[in-house]
Amino acid sequence: MLKKVAYIIILILVFYSCKGPNNELNMPGYELASGDIQIPEEAMEDIIQNISSPIEMAALIKDLGLNFSDQYLSNLDLVDNYSSSFKMAYTLGMLGADLGYLNVYERTGSSVSYLAAINKLADGLKVSQFFDFNTIKRLATSNSNLDSLIFMSVHSFNEMDKHLQLTDRSNLSALMIAGVWIEGMFQVTQVSLSQKDPVLSEYIGEQKLILNNLLLILKNYERDDQFAAIIKDYEELKKSFSKVDITYEISDPEPVEQEDGMLMVVQQETSIISISDNVLSEIIEKTKTIRNKHQLL
């Protein structure tokens, strides 16, 4: 009898862990509004690959020699109250960008509370199997292997995103990516306030391309009120980005073999981003307003 019970439990556990996509959509507080998905799933995946990585913006900020500030990080106090998968996915993305920022600046001690919050959200979204909390926490607290910590953190986010797409939860994947983007944008724009840098201004200006891609994804779900609210805010930001000009100068790439035998290909074709100070200020202000508003959604 006991054996039978054990097998039944195993079966339940296995079925639970292999739970199909439709079941996973029925999560507390949020279901996808009915409506056709306009972009095929494969194209969605392609577009999502073109949105910011949770670490790239932070790496760029650090490369420019700019100082760390915890003022650019999200408030964790609200995380405990989130029960809808909509809010959890969006915040997971935001915290992913924060974790990238903390890791790049080697603030691994401070990152533990962010790791705990991420783990909680990942658990709520049933993707925590891709976030090895204990290993990542150990790497963060031991402060011994930063490369492994960054790898594990970024890889976990990539895998969580892939899993959301594979389990027909591209809506949540889109939200997560949007969260990474808006938080990264907030960090970069706030940094640019404290230190003017042409590279940073260009970087902000070229986010025009990324925002267009992001809106393409989000608009698939615009029949949902919560998505519609986010889209409306991003459209407002898009208005400011429409004043950014991006032009191209065409030329062939130049391969150069380096002393260590590695090949370096330097692109000669360049993009020229024209962004006035006024437009930059407008984008900085709108980004801050939207990011702060969305934290409290």
Binding site: N50, E206, Y248, M262, L263, V265, Q267, Q268, T270, S271
Partner: peptide, 26 residues
Amino acid sequence: MILSTWYPDSGKEFDKINFKCMKSGV
């Protein structure tokens, strides 16, 4: 094509290549 880890004409192969990007895009 911008880069390749194998150039059959010269026979050169690389397991890693750096790319200095000068144009934001896909």
